[in-house]
Computed example of a mutant assay.
Amino acid sequence: MKRIFPLPLILALGALAQSTLGVEPPVLLKEAKPGEVLTQTLTVYNVGTRPVRVRVSLGDWTYDPMGKIQFLPTGTLKESASPWATFSPAEFLLEPKQSRPLTYTLTVPKDAVSGTHWGILFLESEDPNPPPGVPLATFRVRMAHVFYVNIGPLTSGGRITGIVPSPPKSPQEPYRFAIQYQNTGNTAQKLSGRFEVRDSMGRKVAEAEVEEVVVLPGQVRILPVILVGPLPAGNYTALAILNYGDPTKDVAADLPFTLRTPLSAPPGPPANEGGKGGTP
């Protein structure tokens, strides 16, 4: 088993009163060969004070370039691993403070193509005895276990297709950038990186955080970057440096831009007024 990707989604259909459903592990990555059978046992737990009825189902998921999750019927995606899965039990009752195992099996087709395949196992719970007069939907919670299956040979690659600037309308606003990245390989990637600003002499004068995300094979992600001051007016170069999991290789792109008015520092906490009067 290789590194585990961050969980891209945990969902809720409402607040389950006095009850919390969980699953461990929430995400899993396995290596497999065509024709291989994989079995995984999860632990489903209820840390709340009321019993819950849990129903299990399968689905597909993907996202748009901004990272908004989209849920789809099983087998919608050509990379879907959900049709390979069977599980037991499909429904069970979980008492307060109780946990129980849930086993699922992935039967990889003999003609499975190389690359990353993925799916999602939904666990939806509801209170079997909701208080009178309260809509049942109020007491539903849906959690997710995401599974990835890597089938070799795997190819890794990526590129930054652009950096789009959004200048501030006032010195108090941040300077916003959008890094456009494309996964050109056939395997899911854990993308990380940094964003720097350099002056006309090549010196780093500012930096901003780049969110760590998962990028599915062939897909595009837009990574928002927020740059705050203080930064004087002048000519600069924005530099995005990203890594998709290869410790020996980064991808980079730059964008010259002009800051026409100084960029202010973000507002600080209110000044301490202590000492000017007694305690109320």
Score class of each variant (00 low, 15 high):
76 T>L: 01
152 G>N: 09
21 L>A: 00
29 L>V: 15
35 G>R: 10
178 A>S: 15
226 I>T: 15
192 S>R: 13
206 A>F: 05
87 F>P: 01
122 F>W: 06
163 I>S: 02
17 A>D: 12
263 L>F: 02
254 D>C: 04
20 T>Y: 11
52 V>Q: 11
160 I>K: 04
216 L>T: 00
225 V>K: 00
24 E>T: 15
73 P>W: 07
66 M>R: 15
139 F>H: 14
28 L>P: 00
179 I>M: 01
188 A>P: 00
50 R>W: 06
119 G>Q: 02
142 R>F: 00
107 T>Y: 05
94 L>C: 00
273 E>S: 13
181 Y>F: 15
131 P>K: 11
265 A>F: 03
120 I>A: 14
179 I>L: 03
257 F>M: 01
165 P>D: 08
262 P>N: 08
126 E>Q: 14
187 T>R: 14
91 E>N: 10
36 E>T: 06
53 R>Y: 08
245 G>Q: 06
190 K>F: 13
164 V>D: 13
131 P>S: 09
175 Y>N: 02
146 V>T: 13
250 D>H: 12
37 V>L: 10
224 P>I: 07
199 D>Y: 04
142 R>V: 10
35 G>Y: 10
221 R>F: 01
273 E>P: 06
25 P>Q: 07
269 P>T: 08
144 A>S: 12
24 E>P: 01
221 R>A: 05
261 T>G: 08
143 M>D: 08
78 K>N: 12
